[in-house]
Amino acid sequence: MLRYLTSRIVATFVMALLATLIVFLIVSLVPGDPVLSQLGDMAASNPEIVKAYRAKWGLDLPLYEQYWIFLTRLLNGDLGISITSQRPVMADIAQYAPATIELGTIAFILSVVIGVPFGIAAAVARDSWIDHSARFISLIGVSSPVFWLAFIMLTVFYGWLQIAPGPGRLDPIDLPPPRVTGAFLIDSALASRWDLLHTAVAHLVLPSIVLCAATLGLITRTTRASMLDTLGQDYVRVARAKGLRERAVIVAHALPNALIPVVTLGGLAYANLLTGTVMTETIFSWPGLGLYTFRSALALDIPAIMGMTLVFAFVYLLINLLVDLSYAVLDPRVLKR
């Protein structure tokens, strides 16, 4: 087990580095000059300023040297300075990550808490109204474009019914709670600011519903399919033949086996929720990593792009690792293999 873990962790680091190398090469191939997006028209026409600026960001060095600098800095835990925000990429990530993690996690919890029971119920009561509605809802969830759904939700619940608050993490007149984690739910609770906690929760409702829609659909469908498959297995028939109660058959015998594909999918879906929030963040003016990455890419902000590549690579690799480890819990045979 330990050997397996070590090799997986080493592989994780190597893969993350490879990802940065590939992204670095791609970004460097783009013909744009990142300096120009950060200089005014007059300064950009002054060769001296442009030269000094390129030197400041190390853009005048040969490619391999730029990458080498990136690697040595990385060893010291330094991701360099973002060209756009002109401050450490680490500071930017620390600034924007909590908003995304908070939103992505809530959306993930929502999709699991609703999706898994729904999927099980649909499979157990196959072809009943629960089953049909589960399939209908997951179809809608998977096929609605996020930007459309986000806007419809905002128009209906914020604009017409006026029961949900508008875009942003808090109301415009609120000052955020003292920063501890950056996640407003936690920080406002720590500061005993229940009014802020209330506002922060309210502001999370619409974006997390929008964000979880597609994932919810996927999880429901997968749970249903996997459960149906498991329920048809011999050991389930044996369990029933032994005279076990239906509840015990489903919860103790079928469910753990049925959950394995759901866990795999859930892990990937979580990683996807953490890294793929651009549209939701755009419409809800959510100051998170998705928008940060998107803008860094548009501005060819190489240090920021590299930093985000690392973060995203780690998120995926780490979650995959956790998924693999969780198999061992769900299915002890995995360890023996």
Binding site: W129, T199, L206
Partner: peptide, 25 residues
């Protein structure tokens, strides 16, 4: 027999019960 509304409405309303911050406030 595709009666999706009772279920979703309950779900959505429960969630929006939290969401009605402006009104409860």
């Amino acid at each position: 027999h595709v009666r999706i509304l009772p279920v979703t409405r309950r779900d959505v309303m429960r969630l929006l019960g939290i969401g009605g911050g402006a009104a409860i406030g």
